[in-house]
Amino acid sequence: MARINWYKYASPTNFYPFAEKMIPWFAFPAAVLFIVGLYVGFFVAPSDFQQGDAYRIIFIHVPAAWMGMLLYVLMAIYAAIGWAFNARLSSMMASAISITGAMFTFLSLVTGSLWGKPTWGTWWVWDARLTSTLILLFLYIGFISLQASIDDPRRADRAGAVLAIVGVINVPIIYFSVQWWNTLHQGATIRLLGKPTMAPPMLAAMLIMLAACWLYSIAVVLVRLRYIIIEREQNAARAAEVSV
């Protein structure tokens, strides 16, 4: 078996063509799984005896919520590695992930409120999970705006890393405090599902959709990463031209 020199791909210029080759390998399966997952979710899975068909939005909502949280942690890890080992590619990865993570978090809020209307009779409930997801979205917005307002890419990477690490330490505290706040004000709490006894097709649809979301995230992050690499190389080339 040929040994692959992984360090080679740690440099953005070498990673660029590699990413290009990898993108279809994630994008196409993602599309297929989305179609399969939605089909199973909408046509195979049975109606819920309490919520009828309205519950079916969870096939998007739940994977989106999971992705929102996971991607935040992943973003912080990449940012931290980029900072600690001065690995540019890793920092760029964090910036690329941030947008996708924010998108999923936003999607889970929107689908949550779409679900809330028929289920709870209102678009928005100050439920513990919705509230902490909202704050997670704010954390993403903070990371993205901080990076956007710093011109020097090196400073942007490292400042983002500090913020992401602080954020990741804070996320459990925020979740706990919001949970605690919610039990304190019992009035607003509504249980999301009764005990989640899921029929097998439901579970299957959920897992397929989750896999699709993962593959989609990888593909989109790779695309975004390529744009970030091009942008920075061009800036560097322009700067070099000026100095000659």
Binding site: D152, R232, N235, A239, A240
Partner: peptide, 8 residues
């Protein structure tokens, strides 16, 4: 030394 995108 590199500042921003520029090698000094």
């Amino acid at each position: 030394c590199v500042r921003g995108d520029r090698r000094l």
